[in-house]
Design a protein around this nucleic acid. Structure first.
Lengths: 333, 333
DNA sequence: GTTGGCACTCGGTAACATCGAGTGCCAGCC
DNA sequence: GGCTGGCACTCGATGTTACCGAGTGCCAAC
């Protein structure tokens, strides 16, 4: 544990570095308010903080830079609760005042909102469809022996699967299947492997069976929807084009992002800093994450992804307020 | 019009520059096969080509770089028909052999395929929903006075709109509306403003009217779906981080991309080079575009977006083959 | 324990020389 | 007349050197 003065000095270094991106020297720290000691004393303390792994020097005779451990201490112990300035607060307010459209549009736009509020990339993971119950399910014939199974879920999402059917299956048959499925699957979840009882008609039964099973298998990857907004801001946050490429590459592999966020959430973390999360390409990134709730149930997560040199208090405040407003909004329908 | 030799020299410069990203000097050109003249002669010709605006020198005593006009001449007159090498051809083949899933997944994955084949960003614009006819339309009640109008279209797409309804509207009423709409809207298009005839019941009529109209208005932006894959490769294609940011920013504004592609297609262009298209942030980019057809009808477009220093023959070959295969695939259902 | 003083380090910047790829021009050659 | 080798010239890239100054660690004094 750091004593009061060491903590103040570490806080000053982190805040200054976040603001300027320049290594911070003892003189700057000593000049900061709340630090009532001389540069020499600051130097002694900084040497200690470096020895303990909170700071590093890029090279001798340069100022100090926080390590991941330094940021961690800052986030966990040193930073006060963040708050959005009025401009950003207004952005959020305006957004939710104007926001309209379907669930998917809402989530996508929210990822952009997060990005413009924080100036980093915004990530929104939609409510898992597994959890929602089926409100309606129907089988619609398209052309050429192809039918579409369409399920409307209680949270307003729609899932569909194509189904190959024999050419001679008529609309009446599909209507029968639809009626049969509706009767027995309404109120259940998509992944629910509940057997559909027999109708006494072998063809109808077989079709129903296949239609019901179409949603069961997992597509290989999960069905979670991920929306990433403001990727252009990644390019502003890093000055090495290689880093930008790596981060963008990671963001494109959505299962990596989903898995990572889920993992963080499971571990109850709201901030992951640099190499902590162990994803190679995101070693220079930090993630600030928050779940959101729809009608009291945890529904999905929102996150901000930026450089480790991130304005954590602001990002935390942003995900908190946006998450809460998004949850409210989705609860209203 | 350029004479034979000038054309060969311009071609050599463009090809060399595309391959190396280095200004091309007269000695390199003279050393190229098919050029049977000395560097001095090449220099004279290059001076002419520069004077005519096909080439520029970044500075005196450097080699030449093609201008947008130079690339244009290359694409229109100099480059032979491109062909994919066996590796890339195999990529495409494997993709369509393995490809499965819903329309949206297919399009998204295709954008990634385009990107990995060309090493630039891939763009796929889905078939417009306006053109497809309604196969099925239903109104499903969710909680809290909210209902969802779900339309299944002939091309396998599903569109939905939320609808606020009075709390006391029961399921029977919605079923009536569904039946009514199904009877009168099947076979029409979504944007079709056809009036729904009266049922004699005012409440049912009002609901039907609102449900039918829900799809008519345009959301502000168009309903076209755009999928952009391989944005990380943008970071590899440019070495200025500012350029990367600008291009990513443009790609995020999907209506810009859709509008641009539509415009190019309308003008019958398959290649747009640098500043030709007039989008500020994409001044350093070229776009190679091709439409694809589903069941004989033009359905959407695919495109490749990369630096003006792009391998045009390869990109053209890629969009041609991918577009054709995609169209085939979607026609099969 | 804190602080001012001081020698030391070392990256960043500027000034300068050098190198070489590439050019334009010209006289000579076919 | 057109092509070519030769040549002086240009100028970015690279390397060298010197210097500055922000920053450090250490120490003696307060």
């Amino acid at each position: 544990m750091l004593d009061e003065r060491k903590a103040s000095i570490l806080r000053a270094v982190v805040e200054e570095y976040i603001a300027t991106a320049q290594p911070v020297g003892s003189a700057h720290v000593a000049a900061a308010p709340r630090i009532g000691v001389s540069p020499a004393t600051v130097r002694n303390e900084m040497a200690y903080l470096e020895h303990e792994g909170y700071l590093v020097q890029p090279h001798t005779s340069a100022g100090r830079i926080p390590t991941d451990k330094g940021y961690r201490a800052f986030v966990d112990q040193l930073a006060g609760p963040g708050q959005l300035d009025t401009g950003r607060r207004q952005l959020v307010k305006d957004f939710f005042a104007r926001a309209h459209g379907e669930l998917e549009d809402m989530l996508k736009d929210t990822s952009r909102l997060l990005s413009s509020v924080t100036d980093y990339a915004g990530v929104v993971v939609g409510p898992p469809h597994e959890a929602a119950t089926i409100r309606s399910i129907q089988v619609v014939g398209l052309a050429h022996g192809v039918a579409l199974v369409v399920a409307v879920l209680s949270n307003g999402a729609v899932e569909k699967r194509t189904l190959e059917i024999a050419d001679d299956v008529g609309d009446e048959r599909l209507a029968a299947v639809t009626a049969h499925l509706s009767a027995h699957l309404a109120g259940r979840t998509l992944r629910d492997p509940a057997a559909v009882p027999s109708t006494g008609d072998a063809v109808t039964d077989a079709l129903s069976e296949r239609a019901a099973r179409a949603f069961a298998h997992d597509d290989g990857d999960d069905g979670d929807q991920v929306y990433v907004g403001g990727t252009a801001r990644i390019a502003s946050a890093f000055d090495a084009v290689d880093t930008v490429r790596e981060v963008l590459g990671a963001l494109e592999q959505q299962y990596v992002i989903v898995g990572l966020l889920r993992d963080l959430l499971d571990r109850g973390l709201s901030v992951s800093i640099g190499s902590e999360h162990g994803v190679q390409n995101l070693a220079e990134c930090s993630i600030v994450i928050a779940p959101y709730e729809v009608e009291g149930e945890q529904a999905g997560t929102i996150a901000v992804l930026g450089p480790t040199r991130m304005n954590y208090p602001q990002a935390l405040a942003a995900v908190a307020v946006v998450g809460s407003r998004l949850g409210q909004r989705l609860s209203e329908g």
